[in-house]
Amino acid sequence: MNWIMSAPVTATPSSSLLNDRWDVVISNTLVKTGLGFGAGVLASVVLFKRRSFPVWLGVGFGLGRGYAEGDAALRSPTAGVRTVKA
């Protein structure tokens, strides 16, 4: 197992290229949905006397945004995903 220890760590194995993209898509969708949910709750409490529809609306917006960005990310390797230079 010595060779494994000394082998350089590759960025992404070719077999997990698609899985990595799915990770990005799902995490992005969760974030956007969460943001929509938060905005909906805030709007419901502040503006709509704690009614439920702003929450569903916000969740819907988040899901839609996540789907759109995820679709673009799966179609093109560079679309919709921000790259951060370490």
Partner: peptide, 22 residues
């Protein structure tokens, strides 16, 4: 053998597949 399921899935992908395609 570990790669084979990935190959099966990838073989069914349409060209320029999006979320629904995947």
């Amino acid at each position: 053998n570990l790669l084979a399921p990935e190959l099966r899935t990838a073989a069914l992908l349409p060209p320029n597949a999006g979320v629904l395609g995947h």
